[in-house]
C-alpha cells in the first residue's frame, strides 16, 4: 500500500484516500475536429506505460479532492516527488538515470 504525499494537504496519506488518474500531462487537443481518427485515437488510448519513471495523476478523492501529479518508479513503486497542477516535474526519466 503506497504512502502518498498530497502536495495540497502537505501530508503523507494512505493510498486508500486516493484514486489513480493515469498518465499525466496529456493535453487535450485544442481542435479535436482537425485531427484524423488516428491522431484522435492516439490521444484517447495510447499511453507511454513506461517501466521505470512515470509521471502520473492522482486524485485525493477522500481528502482535499484535488488532482495532482506524482513521479513514481513503476518497478520499485518509489514515489520520487509529487507536485501540483501547473507545476513541472523536477525529475525526469533521463535524470533518474533511465
Amino acid at each position: 500500500m503506497l504512502l502518498i504525499h498530497c502536495p495540497y494537504c502537505r501530508e503523507d496519506r494512505e493510498e486508500e484516500e486516493f484514486s489513480y488518474g493515469g498518465e499525466a500531462h496529456i493535453v487535450r487537443p485544442l481542435e479535436p475536429e482537425a485531427l484524423s481518427d488516428q491522431e484522435w485515437g492516439d490521444y484517447l488510448f495510447f499511453r507511454k506505460n513506461p517501466r521505470g519513471i512515470h509521471h502520473e495523476m492522482w486524485y485525493h478523492q477522500t481528502g482535499c479532492r484535488r488532482y495532482f501529479y506524482a513521479t513514481r518508479n513503476t518497478v520499485s513503486y518509489e514515489i520520487l516527488e509529487t507536485y501540483m497542477v501547473g507545476e513541472k516535474p523536477q525529475i525526469s526519466a533521463a535524470e533518474a538515470g533511465q
Binding site: 500500500m1 503506497l2 493510498e15 484514486s19 489513480y20 506505460n49 517501466r51 513514481r72 513503476t74 518497478v75
Partner: peptide
C-alpha cells in the same frame, strides 16, 4: 490494482 506497475506486487488493501 489501481496504478501502473511492473513490480509483481500490489497493495495490501
Amino acid at each position: 490494482d489501481g496504478y501502473n506497475g511492473y513490480g509483481q506486487r500490489g497493495s495490501f488493501h
